[in-house]
Amino acid sequence: MFEMRYAADRGKADFGWLQSQHTFSFASYYDPAQMGFSALRVINDDKVAPGAGFDTHGHKDMEILSLVLTGKIAHKDSAGNTEVLPAGEFQLMSAGRGIYHSEFNASNAEDLKFLQIWIQPNQFGGEPGYQQKDFGQDEGLTLILSPDGRDGSLTVRQNAFLYQLILAQAGQQQLALAAGRKVYIHLITGELDVSGHTLQPGDGIKISEQAALQLKATADSKALIFDLP
C-alpha cells in the first residue's frame, strides 16, 4: 500500500524568526489522520532566522534527530554537550529519562534550514545520549541509524533504520523489505519515482505490505528512507 503525503498539505507555522512545515501533527497543527507513521512521530522542515533559535526546553523518552540542510546549529544540553552542527551533519539526541537543550542559528547573517525528526523509542527512562556524525554524500544508500549501531551508524533506541539515499539523474536503487515492515520516504531535493509514485521536494510517502521498492531519480535527488516496525 502506498499513501502520498504532499508537501503542500503539511501543517505550517510562521513565528517570524521561525518558519516550519509539519509532516505530522505538531504543536498548534493537529490532524487526526497525520499523527505519525509507525514509530516515526515528527518531521519538521524548519527555517530559522539569523541569530534566532529555540530557548532551553525539555524532552523525555524520545529519539530526536536533526539534519542540517544549510547553515549551522549551535546546540547545548544539560548533559554537558556543546556542539556546532554544520550542513550535512546528523545529530541524534536520546532524551531518556529527561534532558534539556537549546538550538540556535549559529550565524548572525544567514538562515538555518534543518529537519527535526522524532522517533518514539522502545526503551524508556535511562541515561540521555548524544551522537553526531557526518556520513558524507556517497551515491546510493547510506545507513544513518540502526538499533545496534552497525556499519558505523548512530544507535537509535527503537527497532528502526534510517538510510540516506543519493541518486544522480536516471540513477536507480532497489530496496528489499522484510515482512511486516513499514517504510516512510521523505524527499529533500530532486525528483524521485518510488514504484510508480512521483515525489517532489518536501513530499513523503507511507509504504506498507511491500516486498521491495524500485527507486529511480528523474533529477539529482536526496531522500531519507525510514524502515520502521
Rank of each mutant, 00 (worst) to 15 (best):
F2R: 04
F2E: 05
M4W: 02
A7T: 01
D9T: 14
D9W: 08
G11L: 10
G11K: 08
A13F: 13
F15Q: 15
G16R: 08
W17L: 06
L18G: 04
S20G: 05
Q21F: 14
H22T: 00
S25K: 01
S28Q: 14
Y30Q: 15
D31Q: 05
Q34Y: 13
Q34N: 13
G36V: 04
F37W: 12
S38W: 09
S38P: 01
S38C: 11
A39G: 03
L40S: 05
D46T: 03
D46E: 12
V48D: 02
A49E: 12
P50Q: 06
A52Y: 02
T56E: 15
G58Q: 11
H59S: 06
D61W: 00
D61F: 05
M62R: 11
E63M: 06
E63W: 07
I64M: 12
I64S: 10
L65Q: 07
S66Q: 12
L67N: 02
V68I: 14
L69M: 11
K72P: 00
D77I: 06
S78W: 09
S78Q: 00
S78Y: 09
S78R: 07
A79K: 09
A79H: 01
E83G: 00
E83D: 14
L85I: 15
A87P: 03
F90P: 03
Q91L: 10
G96N: 05
G96T: 09
R97V: 11
R97F: 13
R97H: 15
I99S: 07
I99F: 05
H101I: 10
H101G: 06
S102T: 13
F104W: 10
A106N: 12
S107N: 07
D111C: 01
L112Q: 12
I117V: 14
Q120N: 13
Q120K: 12
P121Q: 10
N122Y: 06
G125R: 05
G126F: 10
E127P: 01
E127D: 14
E127L: 12
P128C: 08
G129M: 07
Y130P: 03
Q131L: 05
Q131S: 08
Q131I: 07
D134M: 04
F135S: 04
D138E: 13
T142F: 03
D148S: 10
G149F: 07
G149S: 10
R150Q: 12
R150D: 09
D151V: 06
D151T: 03
G152W: 09
S153P: 02
L154E: 01
V156N: 04
L165R: 00
L167S: 03
L167R: 02
A168V: 05
A168P: 03
A170P: 01
G171D: 08
G171P: 03
Q172G: 04
L177P: 02
A178W: 00
A179K: 15
A179T: 15
G180L: 10
R181N: 09
K182N: 14
I185Y: 06
I185K: 06
I185H: 06
L192W: 04
L192E: 11
D193S: 12
G196Q: 01
T198R: 14
L199F: 07
L199I: 01
D203P: 05
D203S: 09
D203Y: 08
G204N: 02
G204T: 04
K206N: 15
I207N: 05
I207Y: 07
S208V: 03
E209G: 01
E209Y: 11
A212K: 15
L213F: 08
L215A: 08
A217I: 06
A217G: 03
S221F: 09
K222E: 15
A223L: 08
A223G: 05
D227R: 03
